[in-house]
């Protein structure tokens, strides 16, 4: 029977871990905006390389 006590303790600890993860995710602002990240991920990251030529060629075709 004592196995059950350990299992329950273990399951509660795991569950509390998830609760903590959830609270962290809310606190870090992941639920504040559920739209912009979906757009942001589609932008190219080529800004740092400064490739204006590419932009221009794109525009011409």
């Amino acid at each position: 029977m004592s196995a059950i006590f350990i299992l329950i303790a273990a399951s509660l600890i795991v569950a509390l871990g998830f609760l903590a993860a959830f609270i962290w995710s809310v606190k870090s602002g992941q639920y504040d905006d559920d739209y912009t990240p979906s757009v942001r991920m589609l932008f190219d990251d080529n800004l740092k390389n400064n490739t204006p030529d590419k932009n221009n060629t794109k525009k011409q075709d």
Partner: peptide, 27 residues
């Protein structure tokens, strides 16, 4: 539109004093 997000998140290119800009589009 998404262009707005893009330009606003790249404000640091125009004004180097800006370190980071992040858009919340819905708000």
């Amino acid at each position: 539109c998404s262009s707005c997000i893009w330009i606003l998140e790249n404000l640091s290119k125009i004004d180097p004093g800006i370190i980071k800009s992040q858009v919340n589009f819905l708000r």
